[in-house]
Design a protein around this nucleic acid. Sequence first.
DNA 1: CGCGTAGTGGACCGAACGGTCAAGAATTCG
DNA 2: CGAATTCTTGACCGTTCGGTCCACTACGCG
Lengths: 195, 195
Amino acid sequence: MARPRSFDEKQVLTAVRDQFWDAGYAATSLEDLMRVSGLGKGSLYAAFGDKRRLFLRVLRGYTDDSHGHLRRALAETPRALDALRALLEAPTGATTRRGCLMANSTCELGNADPDVLAHAHRTYETSTALIGDCVARAQREGDLPAGADPIETARALLAAQQGLLFMSRTGMDAAALSATARSLAAQLLPDPAGD
Amino acid sequence: MARPRSFDEKQVLTAVRDQFWDAGYAATSLEDLMRVSGLGKGSLYAAFGDKRRLFLRVLRGYTDDSHGHLRRALAETPRALDALRALLEAPTGATTRRGCLMANSTCELGNADPDVLAHAHRTYETSTALIGDCVARAQREGDLPAGADPIETARALLAAQQGLLFMSRTGMDAAALSATARSLAAQLLPDPAGD
DNA sequence: CGCGTAGTGGACCGAACGGTCAAGAATTCG
DNA sequence: CGAATTCTTGACCGTTCGGTCCACTACGCG
């Protein structure tokens, strides 16, 4: 052993993530990263590699966390239907002003960076699968019509959620956004016929 | 009068727009703009001002064009319902890989540039109004239930469209995307009860 | 045919960029 | 305590950034 690190890796990654989240990849300079992390250039490079590697690491951590939260929310909510409704109402929260780091990154870099695009593809496939499981559970619980394909429903829900997330970024009125979320939930999560 | 311009302004704006569209604002350098426009720095600055002013001009031109196309499509389609369906299927086209310039710009700059955010807000308000008119026409034509608020329906359709647009950027399978678009259309544009 | 004027293109600028590196500091172990 | 080793710091590098400027060019007009 020798001199130990003077920083907490998780704290640094969180600070760096927030910086990328607020400003995007290109608009974040190494100086920004030094400022928010409190580290010098050398330390940053020694610990995480160059800017792009650091960004990809942050992105992977972000999607892992997100899927963890999603998995837990979908599994722990007593009635699956409520979890699906909450999914659509998530973008109406106040936290949404800066959007979702993965969605922002897909928009900014998906065209130019195949790694980011591939990661985005995998991420949303996983989300679809998780939501699909929850749809199937809601069907078993009698809260959704049994006929529909759970994956197809999940895709529609995910698209609607991402659309709401985007609309919230346009500065759309919070009340209107909330109403639209409820309206979409009502139409995409209909009562089963024989209820 | 004196020496006339040696370039066509529209052509230059189109080339510049495509560059911003492909790469985003921050990732487009003045050298890129010179290359795609064929102009020198001096000419570019004399004709359009600095990079940001040029970008804002391109963005305004883009949204004006988009709304022109939208207005025409919504008005000229014989049955309004078909125009609304087409709206949801637009993101399934092959042109969509680079997304929508306005949406990309909102994601990239909405947090940091109040002018871009304000323009985004106005743009999507206008889109909502245009779609709302078309929804009202579809109701008059008996293709949609008369009860629903046209603006609320328009908001749901716009959100769904933007969500599909985003999903297409994640590299989602074209067939799945298309199926999701049809599924969303079926649920958000239901047959009127007494049909 | 020249004079005035607007347009052009590239040399040039300071600043900021991402990235490297060496010297020094802090720790463990012999 | 000293040697070995890792981490930290900031000076430094070449490049590229957005932006300015000016000598030159090409045209309309008298």
